[in-house]
Nucleic acid binder design. Structure first.
Lengths: 338, 338
DNA sequence: ATGAAAGCGCTAACAT
DNA sequence: ATGTTAGCGCTTTCAT
């Protein structure tokens, strides 16, 4: 594997000159002919700068890490794609870290990535990162952007308008004529869950409807959680909701399954709308009405912001302005005319 | 950020001594008391060795890359999880590279990973990697393991028994009484598609049934491909199959949708079984019978093998012995009694 | 049992 | 316009 020295020797120049040319450093002029010789030599030898050597010297790795809660959560695929795209444009490589892999040794993984100097910054889309860790990162002045999460201690974040998306979903149900609306919420204690609930409350309030706690249960953003939440709500006595907003696609799968098992027909007896759009919503029983959030864009902007922070520009809190899109399928209809 | 020098100074020893102790080098003895001092100093300073410096010196990065075709393909989630698990055990960090991100500049990504010395080896689960690239890797003696793919030029590979899994699926259909069995195949030219087709042929032959090409179409491992394949097969005249084996879960979603649109009831009119198990199979319309392959195990063994190759042990070709498991749901039944 | 010294490949300040 | 030099932080051989 050719080194800079090899290139310099072949081009009959000093290594420092070769370095300048190959990096495209324009602050010092180089004779065009010399330039040519160096470029030719590098091409001939298939030269690539050694990342460790460069990184040791410059203290930059041109690498960032993206910490996601769980690759199984299909909602993150769009985020991942957006991150990869913009990262490639900006010249970063991306470590994709599934937080399942680090549950039991968070410290260790962050240690390896940050303290060992492997990455220039962190994109954290992991809602449950422990607070001690968060503040530790801050103390070390590690460039960090929280993705899809506003945190008090976080210096920088990029989120979509979860409240607005949720409000739209509920407004749609109300528009269909529903008055008793159930809510399968997100994972307690997470920021997205809070904001989605806020949207639900806002939409209900706008139409003079109450937020009934017996029609609300936590779905934890998982399929099993969705099952449990729906089971719990149906077990509560009194009138049952004629429609549900489920704060996450995976949970909606579980919720639909429970409705089916109970013999409740969707959408004839009960309507369901879920947050997060994905192909599989076309194939559920019945096909599921969803809210599509601008997640790809969120991923892109996250990288962009992290890049700026790495360059010592000031941090920021960004809300992606693109409006949520309701994707109407077969799981929603007017309430049964009792 | 504390360096080795800082630790050495605090412990009153030379950096080389500190290095030996902290790496756990046993070839040279160290007085227990000295050892203690060094360990204490390192802990106090929160010392972590700089990865670039170490890597520059040792020419190892303790990092590997996993190239997957497409994160959207849920079948890969289990592979990814297996890889992450074993990699963590062996002390590797993992670059997860989605091949969509590199479609247009394959060379560049591999260049950055390999030629710049960022990774010690490659796990390639990307069926369509171009051959020039494959042989280039070989020429450079890059440690490579092909995952879920046997390739002629590949020096090492780990696969599951795709033929056996496919044969089991078809045997199951035959056992239910089906005689006309359609096949939505994988992506042409990929090794898995070849092996899955082989399994289909084997099972059919075993029962004296013919492999009818008018009942076969390529599903390309995508949802859209599944739709097209099913559409094409149904368009062919003559008797239509009473059951289908679909070589991939995503394609099965598309295939099911087409059947539904044509008014064909599953499983009453047509049975469907798909390769690849995933939660969403519980939620399709109807819930889908699948074949679960030992994909997590395949991921684990791939890392293990790559690790051995990095250590200069001989390469190998491994077939994961765990038998495929049929997961029977509601999409399969005996053929209609015409 | 410990230390001295060299060097991995690169960049950047400085000298010519 | 180009070269000299020093050093990033670590490992490893050799010397004591």
């Amino acid at each position: 594997m050719a080194s800079l020295k090899d290139v310099a020797r072949l081009a009959n120049v000093d290594a420092s000159t070769a370095s300048r040319v190959l990096r495209g450093d324009t602050r010092q002029a180089v004779r065009p002919e010399t330039r040519e010789r160096i470029l030719r030599a590098a091409a001939e030898l298939g030269y690539r700068p050694n990342a460790s050597a460069r990184s040791l010297r410059t203290r930059r790795s041109d690498t960032i890490a993206l910490i996601v809660p769980d690759i199984d959560n299909v909602a993150f695929h769009a985020v991942i794609a957006g991150v990869e795209t913009r990262a490639a444009e900006l010249g970063y490589l991306v470590f994709l870290v599934d937080s399942r892999a680090i549950r039991d040794n968070e410290e260790d993984v962050y240690g390896r990535l940050i303290a060992e100097g492997r990455v220039d910054g962190l994109l954290i889309a992991y809602a449950r990162m422990t607070d001690p860790l968060a503040s530790q990162l801050q103390r070390r002045h590690v460039p960090v952007v929280f993705v899809n999460r506003r945190a008090e201690q976080a210096p920088a974040s990029v989120v979509v308008d979860d409240a607005e998306g949720s409000a739209q979903a509920v407004e749609y149900l109300i528009g269909l004529g529903h008055r008793r609306i159930g809510f399968v919420a997100g994972a307690a204690g997470t920021d997205t869950a809070r904001r989605r609930e806020e949207g639900v409350r806002r939409a209900l309030a706008r139409h003079g409807l109450a937020f009934e706690s017996r029609w609300v249960a936590e779905g934890r953003y998982t399929e099993a959680g969705g099952r449990e939440a729906m089971t719990r709500i149906l077990a509560n006595g009194g009138e049952r909701p004629t429609a549900f907003y489920v704060a996450n696609l995976l949970s909606a799968l579980g919720a639909l399954a429970v409705l089916r098992e109970r013999g409740l027909r969707v959408p004839d007896d009960v309507s369901v709308v879920a947050m997060d759009e994905h192909v599989i919503a076309n194939h559920t029983q019945p096909p599921l009405t969803t809210v599509a959030m601008p997640l790809g864009r969120m991923g892109e902007e996250s990288v962009q912001l992290l890049h700026r922070i790495i360059q010592h520009e000031p941090p920021d809190h960004i809300v992606i302005p693109d409006p949520p899109q309701l994707v109407i399928r077969a799981s929603t209809a007017p309430p049964p005319t009792a």
